[in-house]
Amino acid sequence: MKAFTVHKGLVAPLDRANVDTDMIIPKQFLKSIKRTGFGKNLFDELRYTDAGEADQDCSGRPLNNDFVLNQPRYKGVSVLLARQNFGCGSSREHAPWALDDFGFRCVIAPSFADIFFNNCFKNGLLPIVFSEEQVDELFVACEGEEGYSLTIDLKRQVVVKPDGSELAFEIDSFRKECLVNGLDEIGLTLRESGAIKTFEDKHQQRFPWLFKELNA
């Protein structure tokens, strides 16, 4: 996993509440058996005016020019500014994969859906929660100034605005450690193999019926 320490990036505002994972990456693109290549279909139904299909070359598709990410000023964007309940709906991890593949490293919103929020951390994507007012201000600032960029300093847990002022954010320490070091979560858990085995043996003694072979 890519380590996340300090990231400076262009910000794009997606002014829409309750953006669900179907909108982030529509289901016809979930059929891949790989983890990469979803970026070209990120926000597919908003981005293009035709119906997208899996395995399609997207370079010649008609673009929806009203859609924010299609505007030239947001080319090279890596920080997404979003509204409440971002990432609701289906648990598909393809949503953070698609955001990551497109080039996003960070999503800022007043609230996120649980599963999506969790999935971000597992893929090196940083979701940051700010209050409604703070997010409103960022929307105004970002829409008002071409090339508006933010610096996200994860170690210090602050977002630095262009004028140098800072907004502090919360993140749980474990997730921070994993992101900062690019640590794979499975490896971390397997360091506890001994404890898992001990628990499992006791669990099996207590609930032997849970360990029945399924090979019938």
Partner: peptide, 16 residues
């Protein structure tokens, strides 16, 4: 729990 694919892998590998 409904989980994401990374978690599917995590549970496969560690049962946790």
């Amino acid at each position: 729990h409904g989980i994401g694919t990374s978690e599917v892998e995590h549970v496969l590998a560690s049962q946790c």
